[in-house]
Design a binder for these strands. Sequence first.
RNA 1: GCCGAAGUGGCGGAACGGCAGACGCGCCCGCCUCAAAAGCGGGUGGGGGUAGCCCCAUGUGGGUUCGAAUCCCACCUUCGGCACCA
Length: 834
Amino acid sequence: MESNEKYNPQGIEPVWQREWQVDRTYYVKPDPDKPKFYTLVMFPYPSGDLHMGHMRNYTIGDLIARYRTMRGYNVMNPMGWDAFGLPAENAAIKEGIHPAVRTIDNIVGMKEQFYKMGIVYDWDREVASCMPDYYKWTQWIFLLMHRRGLAYRKKAAANWCPKDQTVLANEQVVNGRCERCGTEVIKKDLTQWFFRITNYADRLLDDLDTLDGWPERVKTMQRNWIGRSFGAEVDFPVTGHDETVRVYTTRPDTLYGATFLVLAPEHPLVSEITTPEQRAAVDDYVAASRRETEIERMSTDREKTGVPTGAYATNPVNGEQIPIWIADYVLVTYGTGAIMAVPGGDERDYDFALKYSLPIVTVVEPTEVVEPGTDPAVAPVYKHGSSVPCYSGPGVMVNSGRLNGMPTGESKVAMIALLEAEGHGKGTTNFRLRDWLISRQRYWGAPIPMVHCEQCGEVPVPVDQLPVILPTDVEFRPGGESPLAGVESFVNTTCPNCGGPARRETDTMDTFVDSSWYFLRYCDPHNDTGPFSRDLADYWMAVDQYTGGVEHAILHLLYSRFVVKVLADEGMVSVQEPFKRLFTQGMITKDGAKMSKSKGNVVPVDYMVEKYGADTGRLFVLFIGPPDEDAEWNDRGAEGMFRFLNRIWRLFEGKVTVGMEGADRDISDYSPSDRDLLRKVHLTIKKVTDDIDRFHFNTAVSALMELSNAMQSYRDAHGPQTAAFSAAATNLLLLMAPFAPHITAELWMRCGGDEYVHQQPWPQFNADLAASDVITVAIQINGKVRDRIELPADTSEEEAIQTALSTPRVQSMLDGKEIRSTRYVPGRLISIVL
RNA sequence: GCCGAAGUGGCGGAACGGCAGACGCGCCCGCCUCAAAAGCGGGUGGGGGUAGCCCCAUGUGGGUUCGAAUCCCACCUUCGGCACCA
């Protein structure tokens, strides 16, 4: 580059951004000559403005796409819009702008911001979940679920958000509050649509073990959420009734210690078995617990309460009559909604038994700890002066009839066998996971393609009548019912089955349904005969690298896995798992909080780009810290990064040329300082490559800084017009190209490089050039570094130790003492023990 | 309560059992300048010594090892997840 202009990102960046809009490098189709690489960043909700948190996210994705392309992969890097959802609808209610108008506006604006960050996508694959050509296939997937018996409607106590006026999935309730608006969620009995995700619970859990490229943290969260446990269902006949109470327990071995039963207040048998004397108390208790919020109900530290029903049941293994209570610490939604209480083995039951003076029987005695040092088993606890303890650890069965003397593990198996043989119960598996409630009483979503006919009941809309178009002329006022219910022309239809008058389903689908398959649509985005073709899905899937926020660890990532498994069962895709590798990046915070409009702590992308340029912003968000950790915004750091890019710019002033010509020169043609520079170049190639592969972008950037510092020193001494400097300049631009695409593209062009820098192959690490003739070795005496020596690189262990022992420092410390041992860690240090 | 992650200079952070603090920010000194900004050079964990150097130091206390920020045990703190799930 010959001119001496100043670095002016505002001048050069838009030029390259326009270039990338017409350049086809990142518009891809299947290519048999290259390995494919599908990289994906979670598609955004089109909220309007992007801030530095988004910039971090999309910069990482862009870096991966550009890097993998240079590595010779056929890279698919698509982008789209998770465009349905509540914020646009709430804004419509408030401001009177139609959600569709606002959403499209926001998409246009955000796309502009992607260009401004220098981020490249295959925009031919763009999808927006609110467009009929997309939600047609979301509805198609609903019909597939329905056909496979995985979509059903039932009346249930659903989570209802009073502010958003809609039901929520269990996954969208966080600590008893609406995940979106923070309002306390209440329970409402409503008829709702569900997806039978529980049918896939085992596979969703077991296949987590195949996801080696996922963070352990996310897998653990999903395991806990699915919550599989093994145990038994046991039937207790109710005395004087035909009914039996079925309980679920993970500890069938303790059945002899069951001294009472507890039903959830909502349990269907409560009313039937309650005795006349207890009727009033039971009714009061049931009514009181219904009034409680989930937050009150679920609090673990409040005192347990309950009332007896007056009824008794028979313990099937010992014939004992035990009382049946109701208590709100038992949840109707888990297991069978009823438990056998074993106060001698369960602390909750123990507390309850002590409070209401119910009998406590010890059925497990801890095995004596043999070695004093071994980890002691959970110790028995004694509360409130009780002479009988509660013990839940392993041990030996007592007071348990035929099980006496057995260790707990064995007795569990034995008891299940006994129950099954005598017809009192069976071994079962239980899950915490509930079915996915997918219907919403809101407007801005994909209509559920079902029709209610008085003659035929629930009738699916035939595939050839899709999409069921979301009407635009709608009154948005929320009233606990979908706004679609007020649109006569939408609601009134004919039954596809009998042709008679029928009403359309007016609920829309949870937006998580939209986002649970979009990565498949990217593979074949213009297909109008199906959601995607099997060939293209098989070519591109699975996603090789998925990047997004950890807030989706359960919701989106679990639902997507479920949908892919259903599609695999239908024979539509070959993969069992959609995302091979997952990276969850941290938030960028300001004033200690996530950037959000409501908190007023947003640093917009536009501010960054206008003040310093996109490259500065990109490098800054990569350098700010480990990308999987949260990082606090600070303006100074951005200035430092801008200074770095200015230094890079000046490094290329004068007659610097780039190109690959010097790459095959003989090592002996170079002077020692040339060789030092080339050594640094190749060490940097290795470091940057390794760091990108393991997502250590912050240290990759620092390696680039080190190289540029070394180049500046070299340039000060030898000038820029040597073959070594040219080689260094070439490699620096190539290595930096995925990080700072504009400045590297510009310098590459100005310095006479071939084509575009991003079309060049990634630099090759050359171990010979990286090798050093001399190595510096530290000498440790008794574990402390006391000296350093330089040795030829090929020194043997013996020679190295001899040289170390002969140095004056070591000699003075030896001082006639005996050498106990020596060892040599090649290239690192020599350890001497006196 | 259970599960998981993390605690390193003034700050963000490096260091995948081998020279703690790379790289950057900030600060200090100097050069350039009439001056400033920008830029450039040097310094920068704590303590001691004229100096060669020495001692201390990665949340706390133990342990394993020739050698520990890194591995193990216990504890403290912070953050995240789950939470009356039988």
